[in-house]
Write a protein that binds this DNA or RNA. Structure first.
Lengths: 336, 336
DNA sequence: GCAATTTATGGAACCGGTTCCGAAAATGGC
DNA sequence: GCCATTTTCGGAACCGGTTCCATAAATTGC
C-alpha cells in the first residue's frame, strides 16, 4: 500500500505542532477556532486518518474484540446457530465502534491474542472442556472474557447460556405427551457443558413419567449434518424407536435424511424434535419441531456484556436465557 | 487486563539492551549463545510476548487480513455458502500466521480499515455495485485487494470468480434435457455481477433450444430462505411452470417450501435446481440438484492470492473456477 | 605480542500516535 | 499602559517495539 500521511506531516503543513493536531483529532479543547479549521482543512484535503495501531499502543486500548470459535470443519462455520451468534456479536461490536477479530480454538492460539494484546476482550463462542486450561490462563491475566455457553469449574468466567436442561426436558415432555414411550436421544459432543445439561433434561423428563433411561437409545454426535445422519442410522439399526430428541437442528436434519433413506417417514413413523431453531428449521421438510433459542440476541448480549466489562461496569456474571418449544410438523402422536 | 511486561523490562532483568532482546525475539544472528539462553529463560519465566501492535507500527506490517462481508441480515452469516468461503479464508490466513479481521460493507466502513492501516490486505467476499466507489478508493491507495466474486468496471481488482453463466446454463440445459419447456428463474440481487451472469446463462440455454425468454417467468430475490419462498409463491400464482432454476441453494430451499405449501410436489410437479451446493443441499428433502462450486476452496484460493499480492509476488489477476452440475432428486422428467 | 578481523553489544533515532507541563500570546480589568 | 488571567500552543517524554551505526570485546593471523 502507498504509505499514508501521518500526524507529523499534517502538523508541518499546518504550521503547528503534533500536539495541536492531536487535540483537533480528539476533539480536545484549547485550540483556537482558526487553527482548528485550518488543521481540519488539511486533514480533509489529504484524507488523513490516524493509524489505529499507533493509537492502540499509545492508549493501551485497541478497540478490538476477539471472537473465538471452534474451527473444526463440521462446526461453527457450517452451523447456522453459531453464525447467528456471530451475527449478533458483530452487530453489537459494530454499533460500539469495536473491530471484530476472529480466532480459532483448535490450537489454543487465542491465548496469544491476549498475550500480544491484540484485543481488549475475548468472546468464547463455544468452549469445550479442552479449552479450560487456556481459559484459566486468560483469567489469570484478568483478560475481559465472556462465554456464550456455560464454562464449568471456573466461577471467574462470565457467561450467558441457555437453559439447556429445560430445553431437552420440554422436547422430551412434548414427545411423552404425544404418547411416545421409546424415545431416543442424539446428543452433541460430551465435552460441551450444554450436551451434559441436555442429557440431564432428557433423562429427567423420562424419569418423571417413570420411564427408565436406556443407554442403547442414545448416541453422541458431533453436531454436524453427517453425524446426525450416522447417529440416526445406528439407532434405526439397533433399536425400535418412535421418536428421537436431537441435540441440534443440524443433526436433526441429518437424522431426517437417515429416516427417509430407511424408507420411513417423519413424523408418521418417527417423530423428531431438534434444538436451536436455526433459520432453516421452518424450511426443512417436514418443518422441524424444535427448541427455540435466540442465538442472534445471545450474540448481542454476549458482546454487550463484554463491552461493559471492558468499561469496568458491573455485570451479572451468570445469565441463563429461557427456551421455548416450537411445535412444527416433525412430531406427531405415537401410532405404535 | 493486567498490564503485561515489555521488552525494556526484559532487557533490564537480563542486564542487556532492548536491541539484544529484540534480536533474540526475531532470531537474528550476532547474539552470544550464553546471552541468548539467559534472555530466553527470562522471557519464558515471565511469559513475555511482544506487543503485536507496537510491532505493527514499527514494521509497518500488521499481519492482519480483513474480510469484508455484506452484513445484511439475510446474507452472509445466514448463507452457508459465504460461511464456507470464510472457512476457507480463515484456514489459509491461519496457516500463514495472519489474523483475520471481519468488516461489514453496509456502511462502507471497510475503507477506514485501510486508511487506519489496520490490515495488510482486504478480501471482498461479495461486493455489489454499491461498493464500487469504495473499491476505487482502495485501489487508489494501492491496498492489496482480492474479491471472491467478479468486480465489474475495475481492471485493477484481482478476483476469483466462478463460471456463473456456465453454471446457470448447465442447470437450464439439464431441465431442457428432461423435457421441460416452461422453466422459471429465480435470480439473486441484480446488483451482483454473478446474478447478471447467471441470468445470461439461463437465457442463452433457452435460446439455444429456440425457446424465447419470458420476463414473467423470472423473479429477483435477495438470496435468503424467505425471499426464495416469496419468489416461488409469486411464480406459482402467476404462471404455469414445470421447472425452476434458482440462483442459490438458500432460495431453492425456500422455493421448495412454497411448492409444498401449494400442495404440489418436488420434483413430480415442479423440478428445482439450485446453485452453490451448500452442505445442506444433499440433506434437504428431496436432496437438491444443484450447481456445485467449491466455496471452501475458493476461500482458500482468495486468501492465498491476497497473501501473494502482499508479498509482491506476481499473480494471475482473473481466475474463473469451473462449476459442475450435481444431479440429485429435486429434478425429474417433465410429465406435462 | 600486536594489528586485523570477527563477534557481540548498546545508544539513539525511528515508527505514529498521546499527554504532561511550562511558556508564549491574547485578553481582561482598572 | 500595566499586571493578572485565560487561552492557545509546543517541547519533550512516553507507549513498545525495530534498526542503523558505532564501539567494545574476543578471536585470528603471523
Amino acid at each position: 500500500m502507498k504509505s499514508r500521511i501521518n500526524i507529523t506531516q499534517i502538523a508541518k503543513m499546518a504550521g503547528v505542532s503534533k500536539t495541536t493536531v492531536s487535540r483537533v483529532l480528539n476533539n480536545k479543547p484549547d485550540v483556537k477556532a482558526e487553527s482548528r479549521e485550518k488543521i481540519e482543512r488539511i486533514i480533509k484535503k489529504y484524507n488523513y486518518y490516524p493509524n489505529a495501531y499507533a493509537k492502540a499502543v499509545s492508549n493501551k486500548k485497541s478497540n478490538t474484540i476477539c471472537a473465538v470459535i471452534p474451527h473444526d470443519a463440521s462446526y461453527v462455520f457450517s452451523n447456522p446457530y453459531y453464525s447467528e451468534i456471530l451475527r449478533g456479536v458483530s452487530q453489537m461490536t459494530n454499533a460500539n465502534n469495536y473491530q471484530l477479530l476472529l480466532s480459532f480454538s483448535d490450537d489454543g492460539k487465542y491465548v496469544d491474542i491476549a498475550k500480544e494484546q491484540r484485543a481488549d476482550g475475548i468472546i468464547l463462542i463455544s468452549p469445550s472442556c479442552e479449552d479450560y486450561d487456556q481459559i484459566d490462563e486468560l483469567v489469570d491475566m484478568a483478560m475481559p472474557l465472556v462465554s456464550a455457553s456455560k464454562v464449568l469449574n471456573s466461577q471467574f468466567v462470565c457467561h450467558i447460556c441457555v437453559n439447556d436442561s429445560k430445553g431437552a426436558y420440554l422436547a422430551t415432555e412434548h414427545l411423552l405427551n404425544l404418547g411416545h414411550k421409546k424415545i431416543g436421544f442424539i446428543n452433541g459432543p460430551y465435552n460441551l457443558a450444554s450436551s451434559r445439561d441436555r442429557y440431564e433434561g432428557y433423562a429427567s423428563a423420562l424419569k418423571q413419567k417413570g420411564i427408565s433411561v436406556d443407554e442403547t437409545f442414545t448416541q453422541e454426535g458431533r453436531n454436524s449434518l453427517e453425524s446426525g445422519y450416522e447417529s440416526m442410522q445406528k439407532l434405526l439399526k439397533n433399536v425400535n424407536l418412535t421418536a428421537v430428541v436431537v441435540s441440534s437442528d443440524l443433526m436433526a436434519i441429518g437424522a431426517i435424511k437417515a429416516v427417509n433413506e430407511a424408507g420411513k417417514k417423519v413424523p408418521d413413523d418417527i417423530s423428531i424434535v431438534g434444538f436451536d431453531d436455526i433459520p432453516f428449521a421452518p424450511y426443512v421438510n417436514p418443518p422441524l419441531t424444535t427448541i427455540n433459542q435466540d442465538a442472534y440476541f445471545k450474540g448481542m448480549a454476549v458482546a454487550e456484556k463484554l463491552i461493559q466489562i471492558i468499561n469496568n461496569e458491573n455485570v451479572e456474571y451468570r445469565t441463563t436465557m429461557d427456551v421455548e418449544l416450537k411445535i412444527r410438523e416433525s412430531t406427531t402422536r405415537c401410532k405404535a
